[in-house]
Amino acid sequence: MKKYLLPSLKLTAVFIILLAVLYPILIAAVGKLTPGSGKGETLTVNGKVVGYANIGQKFTEDKYFQGRPSAVDYNAAGSAGSNKAPSNPDYIQIVKDRIDTFLVHNPGVTKAEIPAEMVTASGSGLDPHISPAAARVQVKRIAAIRNINAAALTNLVKFHVNESMFGPATVNVLKLNIALDQLKK
């Protein structure tokens, strides 16, 4: 083994410099040219940062479009899914409760109109998106609270739908809510 120890040591040292020092520095330098200069893209309202474009936020107030349930309560210091099994009876009860809460806050909506993602926790706990259907189903509630024409809101949602060639269509909840606040003014 001794014959191999010295080359091992030297080779390790060389590759630490190449892979752990130079490589990330190179990528960081290129990253400066990206939107957000490599620190994560932020969104601002009146010059004040209100969030990261890709990180979901907690919206509990009825006047905002709400995102998905989160196992970490949208605290982006960490990240986690619920890891609940499809067969877990406690989990099924939690989903039932979420459905009931949703129906209470959204009068006039039927169970069959609630998209699954609104009552199931995301993988990261920070999912920034909901489906267009999940945004549309909340329009009636928000229109009533904010006293806005529902058709105008539906249009706003439509404008924020991000179609993807192969993936599902998405709506970024934070961007939609920022636009919603501006709509009111």
Binding site: R68, G81, S82, N83, K84, P86, S87, Y91, I92, V95, K96, I99, K111, A112, E113, I114, P115, A116, E117, V119, T120, A121, S122, G123, S124, D127, H129, I130, S131, A133, S164, F166, G167, P168, T170
Partner: peptide
């Protein structure tokens, strides 16, 4: 999830527990 289908919600997106909306069930 068949147990969620029984609850009567719209599960056209698939089994979304633990999944992200931007990827969807198939991917």
């Amino acid at each position: 999830n068949p147990l969620l289908t029984q609850l009567g919600i719209d599960q056209t997106a698939g089994a979304m527990e633990g999944k992200e909306v931007r990827f969807g069930a198939a991917a």
